[in-house]
Nucleic acid binder design. Structure first.
Length: 685
DNA sequence: CACACGCTAATTTTT
DNA sequence: TTAGCGTGTG
């Protein structure tokens, strides 16, 4: 296979064929960014003679990495492939080889937010910390922010502000605890990678040396640590190509430093800068709306998306009395477009600001019999049942993981209660020995009664036994045996007294067993730690292999929709305090919310629909709503009929007692709507 | 130590 | 409003 550079526009071609040295690509939404990166990789290999194995492309999400891998694979001959992965996956590769130099052991665990919170909670319970000054959740959030910026504990401790002081003490204790447990968090993966560069340059350089061309996708989402790591990575050759769009920076809350885009030209003098402003995705109407919204942001690099498809359909503004009616209107609108225009269900996406909003639209779609696919939502690997079961695997792999240990030491119940656990922890701290070592000798200490000591010893013995089995037998088999031995299913069932919840919980466990089993079968050479690493790094965005299922409507948060496109996009709940999100506004993040809205709008290819309810129920109370300020920033002339500027006043009253009739009426009304009746534009590809 | 009831926080986004 | 957590009781 190969690629055809003649299908590229001049700017794209410039980016693709750029030779050595730093390159900054400012890529507007829908400007063919992913295509450019893939084409550049192909160009480097096929035309510039760079070995595929010498290329590293870093993405922000696993989903992006997977898509990039697919595209590149289609353009390159079989054989050695470039490394295409997330920052974190790359960091883990590096740490797996060299973490022992940094005071950790092999087989380290990767802690997720829940695990981290558990550590912080324990820390704050045991030590002298003022919960009112900083509760565990706040503390963890600030801790991660500080870590993302590379702020050391010493700096925090040197600060006179009491909150900073406290945070500094928490950071010290937290890092000590993680090291004791041989665990790293997501930020540690990056920080330790960077530390390796600084403290063991020979080891890091040895690892990096093979990469002679480095590409970074979604550059605006990188944080300080990632940026520093990049600089070390390319220090020897400066062959760094970063692609990003400051208008699509939507991870500021996670410490992303979009300023990295500006710093790039300073830190890499002589960098070539290419701007991609030609949009191939959306109609002019959609692009106009996007431009009108984003231009209200003050801190941005001025740019303007140019389209080439003509105006297309106007934007639709659906107004309803309450949320239920809003979602019914969306579902009806969608169904009608599906039936009337013959559009596939996979052509539609419903976007919302935050995950919990999916519930209402799900109900409405179910009511209309429209199949949908939920992106994200409650994450499989974060479900209690799944985490409990996984805790056993994590313990087998890393016995020092006390978070997992205490999670399951008495689950399923084996008679080791809170008091005994506390005693165990204190005794371990007093002896300065790891908890798991003490377990197996519990009978030797007078601390524990006979029954408790026996239970502890049996627990320790069991883990040891399964450690051996996992090393020798297929992991799926051993995992099932383990769950059976401890009576896990029974324990899960016992936790629910309602049949629904029970079935759901059991189903989750069965799903997990299947996942472990399949992973073991598909990767016979893989060890347990490979599976655990995958679980830790992969998120719900990576819903296994892209299944070839029935066409379905996609339901997703705006964040998770970044990088995707759909012929028709619904932005639901386009109301003040919802989108923009109230807390974000309170935190002074209006501009990031606006960028998020901009991302939502630019996902649409041919039609954009926004919906709004005049009243929302919140905590059981009725709340009057106003149309989103972002929707109001769009020229009313771009809307068909109702617009957010005046739409609320003209809402169609729906008689609840005659819902079926009114729905029918709505359908007729929409069928007759001249704006809506325009035929869809042909595909612009 | 297990269970039940009642209180409180949640409603931002994810590697 | 609801889910998850903590406290108190048996």
């Amino acid at each position: 296979m190969s690629f055809d550079s003649n299908t590229l526009n001049p700017e794209q071609r410039e980016a693709v064929t750029h030779g050595a040295g730093p390159l900054l690509v400012l890529a507007g939404a829908g400007s063919g960014k992913t295509r450019v990166i893939a084409a550049r990789i192909a160009h480097l290999v096929l035309r510039a003679g760079v070995p595929a194995g010498a290329i590293l492309a870093v993405t922000f999400t696993n989903k992006a990495a997977r898509e990039m891998n697919g595209r590149v694979a289609a353009m390159l001959p079989r054989g050695e492939a470039p490394t295409i992965c997330t920052f974190h996956a790359f960091g883990v590769k590096l740490l797996r080889a060299h973490i022992e130099r940094l005071g950790y052991r092999r087989g380290f665990a990767i802690f997720d937010t829940q695990d981290q919170l558990s550590v912080v909670r324990n820390l704050m319970e045991e030590g002298d910390f003022d919960n009112l000054l900083l509760n565990p959740k706040e503390a963890l959030f600030l801790l991660m922010q500080a870590k993302g910026k590379g702020v050391p504990a010493a700096d925090l401790l040197a600060n006179t502000a009491p909150r900073e002081q406290m945070l500094g003490r928490i950071m010290t204790g937290y890092q000590a605890a993680l090291q004791r447990m041989n665990a790293v968090d997501f930020e540690d993966i990056l920080i330790l990678s960077l530390r390796l560069c600084l403290e063991h340059p020979e080891a890091a350089a040895g690892f990096f040396a093979r990469y002679r061309q480095v590409l970074v996708d979604e550059y605006q989402d990188t944080n300080q640590t990632q940026y520093d790591l990049l600089r070390h990575l390319v220090a020897a050759h400066r062959n760094l190509c970063v692609v990003g769009d400051d208008d699509q920076s939507i991870y500021g809350w996670r410490g992303a430093a979009p300023g990295n885009i500006l710093e790039f030209e300073r830190d890499f003098p002589g960098a070539r800068v290419v701007r991609l402003e030609q949009n191939y995705r959306s109609t002019d109407t959609i692009l106009a709306a996007a431009n009108q919204v984003i231009r209200n942001n003050t801190r941005r690099k001025e740019k303007r998306l140019r389209g080439n498809q003509g105006p297309g359909k106007p934007i639709a503004w659906l107004v309803a009395e309450d949320e239920q009616e809003e979602m019914e209107r969306v579902a009806t609108h969608l169904k009608l477009a599906h039936l009337r225009d013959g559009a596939a269900l996979s052509d539609f996406a419903v976007l919302y600001r935050s995950n919990h909003q999916s519930r209402a639209i799900e109900e409405a779609l179910r009511g209309e019999g429209i199949p949908y696919q939920l992106v994200g939502g409650t994450r499989f690997y974060e479900r209690k049942e799944v985490k409990d079961a996984l805790a056993y695997l994590r313990l087998v792999e890393n016995p020092a993981d006390e978070v997992s240990l205490y999670r399951v030491l008495n689950y399923p119940r084996r008679g080791i209660g809170q008091a005994s656990q506390l005693k165990l922890a204190e005794y371990a701290a007093h002896q300065g020995r790891p908890v798991h070592e003490l377990l197996r000798e519990a009978g030797q200490y007078g601390e524990f009664t006979g029954a408790v000591a026996t239970a502890m010893e049996r627990f320790g013995e069991m883990l040891e036994r399964y450690r051996g089995r996992f090393a020798a037998e297929p992991m799926g088999t051993v995992f099932r045996a383990l769950l059976a031995e401890i009576g896990f299913h029974r324990a899960v069932e016992k936790e629910h007294d309602d049949a629904k919840g029970r079935d759901r919980a059991v189903q989750l466990v069965l799903e997990l067993e299947l996942a472990v089993d399949q992973y073991g079968r598909n990767n016979p050479a893989a060890a347990l730690k490979d599976y655990l690493e995958r679980v830790a790094l992969f998120t719900h965005l990576d819903n296994e292999e892209p299944e070839q299922r029935l066409p379905m409507v996609t339901l997703t948060t705006v964040h998770a929709a970044k990088g995707l496109e759909f012929p028709t996009v619904y932005i639901i709940n386009a109301a003040e305090e919802v989108f923009p999100n109230r807390r974000a506004l309170a935190g002074g993040e209006e501009e990031e919310e606006r960028r998020l809205f901009y991302v939502a709008v630019t996902r649409a290819r041919r039609q954009l629909v926004m919906s709004f309810a005049k009243v929302r129920r919140r905590f059981g109370q009725e709340l009057k709503q106003k149309p989103s300020r972002f929707a109001r920033e769009i020229d009313p002339g771009l809307f068909a009929g109702d617009s957010p500027q005046g739409g609320a006043a003209q809402a169609v009253k729906v008689d609840k007692t005659r819902e079926a009739k009114s729905r029918f009426f709505n359908q007729i009304k929409m069928l007759g709507d001249p704006a809506d009746a325009k035929p869809a534009l042909p595909a612009a590809d």
